[in-house]
Amino acid sequence: MHRALRLTEVRVENYRTRSFVFEDGLACQPGQFVMAWLPGVGEKPFSIAASNPLTLMVVAVGPVSEAFHQLQVGQRVWVRGPLGQGFRLKGRRALLAGGGYGVAPLLFLAQQARQQGMDVDVCIGARTAADVLLTEAFERLGVGVHVTTEDGSLGQTGLVTAATGKLIETLRPDALYACGPVRMLEALEKQARQAGVDCQLSWEAHMRCGMGLCGSCEMPASEGRLPGWLACLDGPVWRSDES
C-alpha cells in the first residue's frame, strides 16, 4: 500500500533535474527503489538518493516526472516500497561510477560508506557540463569526485569508463558500484572482470508491478545474470559475487 508523504524541500539540481525531500525517513538500503504515485497521473520507479529524510532525484523525461516537477513544498507524493535488492558494501575502499542521473542511488551509497569509515571515490559521467549532477553533495561527504563529459565541457573528456579504468588500477578498490545506462554498465562489468575486481551494477528496466509478478522487467541473460533475472525482484542491483 502507498504511504502519502509530504514534501518539505524541492532542490533544483540542474536544468531538468530536481531533488524532492520528504517529511519522513524510509528504512531501506542504497540501490533499492520505490514506486512513486501521483494520483491521476501515474506511477513510476525511482531510485533513492537518501533515506532519512527520504529523497528522490527526478529528471523530467515523461508525464510522471514532469508532473513531479510541478510539485511544491507541502504537497504529497504516494510512495510504496522499498522494493528490490540494493548494493552491499564490502571492504574498505569503494569506487562508484554513475552515468547521467544514475548518480542518485550512489549518493545514498556514498553516505553509508563514509559513515562506515570507508574511502570512497566517485566517477560521474555526463554528456555536457550542464548534465553533471551532485558533485558538491559528494564532495561534502568527503568523497573524491572525478568528472568526465563527452564534449569535454567539464573534467576529463570522454566516457566514464576512461576515469574508472585508471582508478581501478591506482586505487585497487574492493568493489566497483555503478548505476547508469546499459552500455556503460556492460563496459564497466568487463573492466571490473578483467581487473579482477568485484562489481555491483544497478540496471534500469521497464517496471510495471514492481513486485516480481508481471515479468515486464526481465533482463536478457548475460555473462553474470541468470536467465529470467527480474530487475524489480532480483535487482535492480546485480552483484558479481552472487553468481
Binding site: M1, M35, W37, E43, R80, R208, C209, M211, L213, C214
Partner: peptide, 18 residues
C-alpha cells in the same frame, strides 16, 4: 501504472492482459 497494489490482506491487480 499503477497496475498492482498490496493492501495488507492480498493483492489487487489490473495488468490488463499485456
Amino acid at each position: 501504472n499503477p497496475v498492482t497494489v498490496d493492501w495488507g490482506h492480498g493483492v489487487l491487480n489490473a495488468i490488463g492482459l499485456s
